[in-house]
Design a protein around this nucleic acid. Structure first.
Lengths: 222, 222, 222, 222
DNA sequence: GATGAATGAGTCTTCATTCAT
DNA sequence: GATGAATGAAGACTCATTCAT
């Protein structure tokens, strides 16, 4: 796991607080996002998160089992929120190919709106700890599978080519968006808007997987 | 991050060895790839790299200024090698759209052949040090720009749509491959070959950017 | 030097503890005096100071920025105390020539009473760091200037020859005492008491600078 | 002893070189004086002395048993030279009180002429290692005893008061000169010449110990 | 629940010294 | 004799975590 020690600290040790303490817990998570984004997980000090959230060092350990747990909890909570929003938005749109575009727009918008969180999700979670990697996979899978669900649905209704492998396509599409996000997070000046980027990426992809000739899909009457 | 400050570590301190020492330097780099891949940069101990490469702890510091420098040097050296190979391969193929496919195949093959190195390049270099991030960008840019060069060439000869923005397209394509690589590196059992993955991804992408109707390009007479 | 660079170590890093912690800080200083005296600054280990003061290694860094800072703080604090005592004692004695004798007696008595501290002040602070040297000068200056103040006063009231240069005389006198201290600290068996030494040195010096024939001053009716 | 290790390396290991190698040995000593003066003994690196003297690291160990031995040898050799010169000069002057003045002038002149050496002798040799301290004492004793010899001679011929204790007086005088030297070595701008300083110090001292009324001695017909 | 002073395990790096050439 | 690449012991310092208050 990330933190240097060799023994995974007992997770059960952590008391599960409730009530108004939830607010303090959130303050710590927010601070952690900020500090992790700025310094990176390994160079972030727990004491800095404490200072940033206005609590004492020890208090953090009332809400989280250890430093790793802060990252994991943060990830879990924010991903749940994101997945929820994404699902809701997508369901509003019946056309699978339009859903793809929606996904791209939403994804990049979320990045744009929550730069620090994006940076943490992008960068810090890609650490090598086997534990982290596997953990990330499970949670990310849920998110990325939103894409393959769309694709399968598209195949069912005939707008996506049957020979497309959803498992590959989902990764390709997510990867394209993800790389764009990274660029977006790390670069100051850009030559185009995030909407343009989202639309172009969606367009490539839709062209790439659609059953119909591209013209009919890629240039929607907008 | 690699090291706490934003200042480039004093590299001059390092004696520049030559002659047969190059072999020792390489042994250290190889060991570092292995150890970083297994433990992650932050959890890797210099002493472990030393043991793995069969030299004394101190010897490492005859070849590298510090732990960071091992990672940076490793990155620099291996990327140079990869970029070189990639360029050479691509030049053998005149057709831009075929070059795209070639790129995908090569990229994933390299990943497959050098799993540990791939893991380090994939995961460890994405850590947060501002320095690292920028550094990575500069070097990665060179690699990713191989893609935009192909696209521009494709536009020049008319096989790629003129409205495609190469800056976006290169990232989308690289991101797709990169995400697939990550999956490839981190997952044990896969349902398809890396060639299949490469071909599908290239196909999506080529479909997405090509001027011609997909059929003529996406199903090459193979 | 204390530590390699010429830059003052980041002192802000250190939390400023108060309350009962002052007692712990003092314990560390006392332990440091003992350990530095025994081993010398460079051969003293921080962990030994920690053991000697009954705190954990890390605790030392709650009170001092680094090893250097222990020495500096120790010096600063103890010199302040010594200068205060010396000033107070001297003011009780109106006659400048008697003040000289008093100074000698006090100086050597302090050495005798605080051998370990004396050794640290004598020996360890004379190490070569430019920083240390300059630092030492500033603080020592205050102490040595007590002597030149006496001399100037003596010149003003006519008991010290006007052609005496206080800047030279103060150093000569201090140097004489200092060398005697060194001898005192380093040697086991001595042939005379420290009072005898102090009186003889004061006598030489008073003879050397007094306006009056030596007999009247050097053999006070004691 | 100074260097960190705990075991005194066997001194016999060192081959005693002769012939033209003496010149190389001297080059190393000269370089050591320079480097020790600049960095201090503990912060001086053997490799730097090697570089400065234009030999390989290992070569130093053909001439000296270890780092300590460089300092000791340097000290021994230079002190021998100084003591020799001092003796010769003093013997030219028959009057003991004039010898005192001569000593002061010579001492400070030597300091002035060999600043770096003086700094090493002044500062670096005052380190706490018991070994060093004792060593220094033996060698310094010889030097400082030149002073007590003069005093005893002066007492024998009646120009120095019989109640003066040579053991105290020698230290007082040496200490006075030594402190002045330190000041001289460490300070950039001075308000008086080293000759003035030497003469004043000698004058104080001669006044202080002489049997005759000061006027006759302190103002020699010069 | 909250605090923050205290803890001490853990690791990078330095550099005197060696020894194969 | 001379070299300088290699060694590896040693120690200052950090910081996640604990626990007495």
């Amino acid at each position: 796991m990330p933190s240097g020690s060799h023994v995974r600290p007992a997770r059960e040790k952590m008391r599960k607080p409730r009530g108004r303490s939830t607010e303090k817990r959130q303050r710590i998570i927010n601070a952690a996002v900020k500090v992790f984004a700025e310094k990176g997980f390994y160079n972030a000090k727990v004491s800095e998160i404490a200072r940033e959230s206005g609590v004492a060092n020890g208090t953090i350990y009332l809400y989280f089992a250890n430093k790793d747990d802060i990252l994991i909890s943060l990830f879990e909570q924010e991903m749940k929120r994101i997945i929820g929003r994404m699902k809701a938005e997508i369901e509003l749109e019946p056309d699978p190919l339009r859903q793809i575009e929606k996904f791209a727009l939403m994804h990049l918008s979320l990045i744009e709106e929550h730069k620090e969180l994006a940076e943490v999700l992008q960068v810090e979670l890609r650490q090598s700890s086997k534990f982290m990697k596997e953990y990330r996979n499970r949670k990310f899978a849920e998110y990325v599978n939103l894409i393959s669900a769309i694709i399968r649905h598209g195949q069912a209704v005939g707008v996506v080519r049957a020979d497309i492998m959803p498992g590959i396509a989902k990764r390709a599409f997510f990867g394209a968006l993800d790389e764009m996000s990274r660029f977006w997070v790390l670069t100051r000046r850009k030559k185009y808007s995030i909407q343009t980027a989202a639309r172009q990426i969606a367009e490539f992809f839709v062209h790439g997987i659609a059953s119909l000739p591209p013209g009919q899909v890629a240039a929607p009457p907008r």
